[in-house]
Amino acid sequence: MVEDWKYFFRPYEQAVSEMKIKMRGLRKQFTGIGQHSPIEFVTSRVKTVDSILEKIERRQISEERLETDMQDIAGIRIMCQFVDDIYQVVDLLRSRNDMTVVEERDYITNKKASGYRSYHIVLKYPVQMINGEKNVLVEIQIRTLAMNFWATIEHSLNYKYQGEFPSQLNARLERAAEAAFKLDTEMSEIREEIQEAQHLFYGKGLNKNQSKDDK
């Protein structure tokens, strides 16, 4: 097994630190030009030793393939206001040349049986170390605030029940997940109606001004 965990974690810690700065930088670029930012806020974490060892045993991952088979040692979570924002963030990540998309899992269109929704992207990110460049895998989870609220509660309950939910609780969690998604859908529709109304309002105002100029 890994002899020096501190040394093992360094490139992952550097990767999440750099990526968090870059994602926050994207948010500032949008707000700086007065546009809606698809990124609400960003959090990060690196797995603990205990979490890695537990997953190694559960998934039967060999030490030789630890850095390739365990894709979520480094994790970034991007929170968005609207579902459409999630896919905008996905497009932004795909277009970057300082990281490479390795895998994508759309749990929004294809939700998990539990009701879990989120968009997962695994990236290969190059970290500049003193002994050269090292590519590490980073998992990015992109979700709305409502999706994150549900996932946080579900995770806490999952820890308490060790993954074995009573059937009644499982059904309630699924209903809660659907309610959260309906809220996201409703808010997206409200946003679209507001944008359409603003477009019509400003369009009419522009036409009036043009008519005055013509006179």
Results as ranks from 00 to 15, higher is better:
residue 42 V to H: 03
residue 46 V to Y: 04
residue 27 R to M: 08
residue 5 W to Q: 01
residue 12 Y to E: 04
residue 152 T to R: 05
residue 147 M to K: 00
residue 166 P to T: 12
residue 204 K to S: 12
residue 43 T to L: 08
residue 180 A to D: 07
residue 86 I to Y: 09
residue 7 Y to V: 14
residue 18 E to V: 02
residue 171 A to H: 12
residue 205 G to H: 13
residue 136 V to K: 08
residue 126 P to S: 09
residue 31 T to R: 07
residue 68 T to N: 05
residue 144 T to Q: 04
residue 82 F to T: 00
residue 6 K to R: 14
residue 34 G to M: 03
residue 93 L to M: 13
residue 64 E to D: 15
residue 181 F to R: 07
residue 7 Y to T: 12
residue 106 D to R: 06
residue 35 Q to R: 15
residue 105 R to F: 04
residue 106 D to W: 04
residue 42 V to S: 04
residue 170 N to M: 09
residue 166 P to Y: 11
residue 85 D to R: 01
residue 32 G to R: 06
residue 95 S to I: 02
residue 205 G to R: 15
residue 149 F to M: 13
residue 8 F to G: 11
residue 24 R to I: 06
residue 41 F to A: 01
residue 90 V to C: 07
residue 39 I to C: 06
residue 110 N to Q: 12
residue 39 I to Y: 07
residue 128 Q to A: 09
residue 14 Q to H: 09
residue 46 V to F: 10
residue 22 K to E: 13
residue 205 G to T: 09
residue 191 R to C: 04
residue 83 V to L: 13
residue 192 E to F: 01
residue 91 D to I: 00
residue 202 Y to R: 13
residue 132 G to N: 05
residue 93 L to C: 06
residue 172 R to Q: 15
residue 23 M to N: 00
residue 15 A to Q: 05
residue 14 Q to C: 02
residue 102 V to M: 15
residue 41 F to M: 04
residue 183 L to H: 11
residue 208 K to A: 10
residue 122 V to G: 03
residue 1 M to D: 11
residue 136 V to D: 12
residue 18 E to T: 05
residue 79 M to N: 10
residue 162 Q to H: 13
residue 212 K to P: 00
residue 194 I to L: 14
residue 148 N to W: 00
residue 206 L to R: 15
residue 98 D to F: 10
residue 183 L to N: 12
residue 56 I to R: 14
residue 145 L to C: 09
residue 212 K to I: 14
residue 66 L to H: 05
residue 62 S to E: 13
residue 189 E to F: 01
residue 24 R to C: 06
residue 89 V to L: 01
residue 191 R to W: 04
residue 170 N to Q: 14
residue 115 G to I: 10
residue 192 E to P: 00
residue 133 E to R: 06
residue 104 E to Q: 14
residue 201 F to H: 15
residue 186 E to I: 08
residue 185 T to V: 08
residue 1 M to I: 07
residue 88 Q to E: 11
residue 180 A to L: 07
residue 160 K to R: 13
residue 174 E to I: 09
residue 74 A to I: 01
residue 113 A to H: 13
residue 47 K to H: 02
residue 49 V to T: 07
residue 11 P to G: 10
residue 2 V to D: 06
residue 157 L to P: 02
residue 151 A to P: 04
residue 69 D to P: 00
residue 11 P to E: 06
residue 82 F to V: 00
residue 109 T to R: 15
residue 181 F to K: 05
residue 36 H to L: 07
residue 159 Y to Q: 15
residue 105 R to I: 02
residue 50 D to Q: 11
residue 179 A to V: 08
residue 106 D to H: 03
residue 104 E to L: 09
residue 95 S to Q: 13
residue 153 I to E: 07
residue 69 D to S: 12
residue 105 R to E: 13
residue 201 F to A: 14
residue 189 E to S: 13
residue 160 K to Q: 08
residue 129 M to P: 03
residue 28 K to W: 00
residue 120 H to F: 02
residue 141 Q to K: 05
residue 34 G to P: 03
residue 140 I to Y: 06
